[in-house]
Amino acid sequence: MKTESGATTKNLDWTGERRLFLGVRPDAANARLLADILPLIPTPAKPIAAANLHLTLLFLGQGTAFQARQLTDALAALPLPAFSVLLDEWQVWPGPAVLCLAGDVVDLALAELYQQLLQVASTNGFTPPQHDLKPHITLARHSKTMPELPPLQIRLQAKTIVLFHSESTPQGVCYRPLWQRDLDDTSSTN
Rank of each mutant, 00 (worst) to 15 (best):
A111Q: 10
Q119I: 11
T15E: 15
Q180H: 13
G23F: 04
L55N: 00
Q91H: 15
A7K: 07
D107R: 00
R18T: 09
Q67Y: 15
N30G: 02
L22S: 05
L133N: 04
I41N: 07
V173D: 04
W93H: 04
K46A: 07
P151G: 08
D36I: 05
L78K: 14
L149P: 02
A82H: 01
T186R: 15
T160P: 01
D104N: 07
L101N: 02
Y175P: 01
S84Y: 00
L163K: 10
D27P: 03
G125R: 11
V24Q: 01
L149M: 09
Q62L: 15
N124C: 14
F126G: 01
L12N: 13
P135Y: 01
P170S: 09
G16V: 14
P150N: 07
T186Q: 12
S143Q: 09
L133S: 03
L75W: 06
N30W: 00
E4F: 15
T9E: 12
K134N: 07
T138N: 11
L133D: 08
V162G: 00
Q116E: 08
I48Y: 04
L113D: 00
Q180Y: 05
P135F: 01
L139N: 01
G61R: 07
H142W: 08
P94M: 07
L53Q: 05
A28P: 07
D182C: 08
T145K: 10
S168V: 12
M1P: 12
Q115F: 05
P26Y: 01
Q180V: 01
E167W: 11
S188M: 03
T169D: 13
G61H: 14
L20Q: 08
R155N: 06
A158K: 02
R181M: 06
P128Q: 09
N30C: 05
L53I: 11
T64A: 11
E4M: 10
E112W: 06
V85I: 06
I154R: 01
A76Q: 10
W90Q: 09
L60V: 14
R181F: 04
L60A: 12
G61T: 08
A74Y: 11
V162L: 01
L12A: 13
R69Y: 07
T43S: 12
T186F: 13
T64P: 07
P129A: 14
P47T: 06
V105D: 03
Q157W: 03
